[in-house]
Design a binder for these strands. Structure first.
Lengths: 111, 111
DNA sequence: ATAACAAACTTACTAATGGTAAGTTAAATT
DNA sequence: AATTTAACTTACCATTAGTAAGTTTGTTAT
């Protein structure tokens, strides 16, 4: 069986695969990104779209995503309290990953 | 912006997306699957291919993957001590997800 | 044949992360 | 002026992960 790619020739990519999957696989991170795929959202909108997540973890994950450059945070209307989160271009590029996971989930359900 | 798919029409898929990404996103799970993409491997081969993982967690993750039907465990040579782990068809089907993550990682590195 | 070694766990313990709930702060609403 | 709301923040307990030593059965060397 062949590998998806050659680790000898792409050590940088190989060494980063683990980091990437561990990052986007952190608890709640995947579904937060998925939620933002349908457009920018405010804090409470994300919270309401994801049953089970707590304010604390949502704050933490959003901060991590901002830090990693996958989303941006915008303060609305000169108010310190209204914010909006939006995927960056590289964050939005995760759509292909999400589609692949969706397809796999569907395939698995049909076994 | 359009969604990758319509949750109204595919509630089953929608509700399972989170489960899927949380499962394959569990610590070490992604890289274990990736490691097995290049063919069946014995316990110590997987351990050696994944720097940092401990015997305890590797055992735990492999058992979870067997339980979820993504890999199979084969005892070699009528011996109780030599085992081999291999991706099932549905486990191997995660290759598309892995390729998507690889592509995204590459794209991100070029920013 | 016996002793040392190895593979694949298993157990015990500590550290890190996640979950729950209450508290905070500034702005918007009544 | 008092109440409510958004978006955190803090404190505390539960769950999960990391580290290291121990176990069991089979294999290899003497």
């Amino acid at each position: 069986m062949d590998r998806p790619y050659d680790c000898e020739k792409l050590p940088h990519i190989c060494s980063n695969f683990h980091d990437t999957i561990e990052f986007i696989g952190k608890r709640w991170t995947g579904i937060i990104i998925y939620t933002l795929m349908s457009g920018p959202k405010r804090f409470h909108e994300i919270a309401e779209a994801i049953p089970g997540i707590s304010d604390r973890l949502l704050t933490e994950r959003l901060n991590e995503l901002v830090k990693e450059g996958l989303i941006t945070k915008k303060h609305l209307e000169s108010s310190a309290k209204k914010v909006e989160y939006e995927l960056t271009a590289i964050g939005m590029a995760l759509k292909d990953v999400i589609i692949a996971i969706r397809n796999w989930t569907k395939k698995r359900a049909n076994l």
